[in-house]
Write a protein that binds this DNA or RNA. Structure first.
Length: 301
RNA sequence: GGUGGCGUAGACAAGUGGUAAGUCAAGAGUCUGCAAAACUCUCAUGCGGCGGUUCGAUUCCGCCCGCCACCU
């Protein structure tokens, strides 16, 4: 089940910095296959709004963990981790190639690369409904009784986290023996980070948003609705789909949607920067050449 | 020209004679379970300007400036 010391390449960075492109380039150069680490691109049908790479852009490089889930159902980190590990095993042992993990979902990458202890626990809607009525203070008390270990580290003011923690604790039994210390790393990763100065990134995000609209993002949302994706669920998907749903429901005009969405994407990009900033393993690069050099050295050992 | 109303942070906006709510934006963060999510922190010595009344004015008065509405 475990992979020991397998070299993997990990490409991270905020949205709109060109991760997909450089990943394909490196995959071709170093004989790799790509594993997406994007919490929304796993869903089928969310293409334009998530900026999913097209067949043509893949240039023949196999991509894993895209289009593997229905947007109607919730997909979780635990599932991601499991499937990504499987994909890595397949790429390393069957294909004898270099796995390249690429994406902006820092938490997914952390779960995978640092081997977080995540037994699969499906959402319990009934329980959630009940818990949602309680205050954070009450929730925190409940969690303390159920899983004092988890309660110690949790953000006690965050209802979302508290509810999920309670859900997990209940599912696993009275005192879950989760391993909260980082497990030994199973992979030998090389982290490459892509970023841009704020001003440039802002501009790129805006241009890309207009391009997405031109390319039929609104039609895509309508199609998803027709296929039975509720507006409520669409809003849960965040960013483009959240604002698209509000627009289709008539709560926002098209231009309001564009402006609010643009702001939201920028805020998201900053959150990604905050996340990746603290991982000192990341080599922040400016050019493709730098990336190539790093990878060559990495594989040479 | 007249009459009335308004003028509070980048935007919206509440408010009081006793020392400026809130929301958004912006910035900084958190992170082992919905992570494109959720959460935390910071952000007006100053309420259009100048005077006056007052122990004290953003709040009352006067003038000026600007905007809006209506009237001539």
């Amino acid at each position: 089940m475990k992979i020991n010391g397998e070299k993997i390449l990990v490409i991270v960075g905020p949205t709109a910095t060109g991760k997909s492109g450089i990943a394909v380039l490196l995959a071709k150069k170093f004989d790799g296959e790509i594993i997406s680490a994007d919490s929304r691109q796993v869903y089928r049908g969310l293409d334009i709004g998530t900026g999913k790479i097209t067949k043509k852009e893949m240039e023949g490089v196999p991509h894993h963990l895209l289009d593997i889930a229905s947007p109607k159902r919730k997909f979780s980190v635990a599932q991601y981790k499991k499937l990504a590990e499987k994909a890595i095993r397949y790429i390393v042992y069957k294909k004898k190639k270099l796995p390249i993990v690429v994406g902006g979902t820092g938490f997914y990458i952390q779960a995978l690369v640092d081997n977080l202890d995540l037994p699969e626990v499906p959402p319990n809607l009934e329980l959630r409904k009940k818990l949602e009525k309680k205050s954070v203070v009450e929730l925190f008390e409940i969690l303390k009784k159920l899983d004092p270990n988890r309660a110690k580290g949790i953000d006690s003011k965050n209802p979302r986290r508290l509810i999920r923690a309670i859900e997990i604790a209940k599912h696993l039994g009275q005192v879950p023996a989760l391993n909260f210390k980082p497990s030994p790393t199973n992979y030998k990763p090389l982290f490459i980070g892509l970023d841009l100065p704020d001003k440039e990134l802002k501009k790129k995000i805006r241009m890309r948003l207009f391009a997405r609209i031109r390319n039929g993002m609104i039609t895509e949302a309508k199609k998803l609705r027709k296929q039975g994706l509720s507006y409520k669920r669409m809003e849960e998907l965040g960013l483009e789909y959240k604002f698209l749903a509000k627009h289709l429901k008539g709560e926002l005009t098209k231009s309001e949607m564009i402006e609010k969405l643009n702001t939201a994407i920028w805020q998201y990009a900053k959150r990604q920067q905050t996340w990746f900033k603290r991982d000192k393993r990341i080599h922040w690069i400016k050019t493709k050449k730098e990336a190539e050099k790093l990878v060559r050295k990495f594989l040479g050992n």
